[in-house]
């Protein structure tokens, strides 16, 4: 005999981290962004960070909406500018763990300049990039990540220019942690997010994620589930792989794993060191009460 019991006290673990009054969210059926939010919530739990000191900053686009759903101090900025916003916030209050959570177009097209410079400076930011190979919110235009040959609304005869290989870009610019997983790899994504939260420095995680409404449909690749099966079947785990060699081709194999995990002084450490060396006792320091008044 099957029976229905009253809901127990324990709720969906993600609910402690989302603004449940705003659910259902805007994401399409089969979109993987919500899946990454599950991973994020578990990572927050595992990291044992003080949630009052965790901030999510997003740009514009489908992934940009993450900021609106997480139950944290969260800032939905303009298109491409999540990293500059996060820069100002982190420098003024280094106690905050500042997570930049945005899409591939936002972070690497309109925000590409900020991305490479934040990596160069080694700002202590945790950048989570949900890469669905396309501009979703605006209806399916080609992105800097679109694999060659893919059909988009603005490449109706197939995309022909070279996409960014994001881990290679991040490493080249100076990131201290670089990983790539897919929405299929929920445990690994959670683990990578947890590692980033515990690590100091510019950390970058690329998560390939289905866009069934636009990328999959226009390219006759089935629905979100088909994309997830593709990730499952075609992903090859190669930790420490040379990022130069892990570009993604249309429906080709996907190299996943943690590629970079190094130590390098962060911007504020370098600044404090330099100013202490040159100004000595005259240096008033840069953090805390001085800045916030």
């Amino acid at each position: 005999m099957s029976l229905t019991v009253e809901a127990p006290v324990q709720a969906n673990p993600v609910e402690a981290f989302v603004r449940t009054e705003r659910i259902p969210h805007v994401w399409c059926p089969g979109c993987g962004i919500g899946t990454t939010v599950n991973c994020f919530s578990r990572a927050l739990q595992q990291s044992k960070l003080d949630l009052e000191k965790v901030v999510v900053v997003s740009g514009i686009g489908c992934t940009g909406r993450v900021a609106g759903y997480v139950k944290l101090d969260s800032f939905h900025t303009t298109h491409g500018r999540a990293i500059p916003f996060a820069t100002g916030m982190k420098l003024v209050n280094p106690e905050l763990t500042v997570i930049v959570y945005s899409g591939d177009g936002d972070l690497t097209a309109i925000g590409g300049n900020h991305f490479i410079h934040a990596a160069r400076r080694n700002l202590d930011l945790k950048v989570i990039c949900v890469n669905n190979f396309i501009y979703g919110m605006t209806g399916g235009q080609v992105a800097p990540t679109t694999p060659v040959g893919a059909i988009c609304t603005t490449t109706p005869y197939g995309s022909f220019d070279e996409p960014f290989n994001l881990p290679f870009l991040a490493e080249s610019a100076g990131a201290t942690y670089v990983a790539r997983w897919t929405a299929f790899h929920v445990r690994q994504v959670t683990h990578a997010m947890t590692e980033m939260m515990r690590k100091k420095g510019f950390c970058f995680l690329e998560i390939l994620s289905p866009c069934p409404t636009l990328y999959q449909r226009r390219n006759r690749l089935g629905d979100g589930l088909e994309a997830m099966k593709y990730y499952k079947d075609q992903s090859v785990v190669r930790h420490g792989a040379n990022t130069k060699e892990i570009a993604i081709s249309f429906q080709g194999p996907i190299v996943v794993g943690k590629f970079i995990d190094i130590e390098r002084p962060v911007f504020l450490e370098r600044m404090n060191k330099q100013l202490t060396r040159t100004l000595d006792a005259e240096y008033a320091g840069c953090v805390g009460e001085n800045v916030c008044g």
């Binding site: 127990p8 006290v9 324990q10 709720a11 969906n12 673990p13 993600v14 609910e15 402690a16 989302v18 659910i23 259902p24 969210h25 994401w27 089969g30 979109c31 993987g32 962004i33 919500g34 899946t35 939010v37 599950n38 991973c39 578990r42 739990q45 929920v186 445990r187 959670t190 979100g224």
Partner: peptide, 28 residues
């Protein structure tokens, strides 16, 4: 629960369920 993009499903282990209340309280 990890996969569901819509936060519509999750599962708990029985032993966790008995401790669940306290664990959840911590998470909030």
């Amino acid at each position: 629960g990890m996969y569901c993009p819509d936060f519509a499903i999750y599962a708990v282990m029985i032993k966790n369920r008995q401790q669940g209340s306290a664990a959840h309280h911590d998470a909030v």
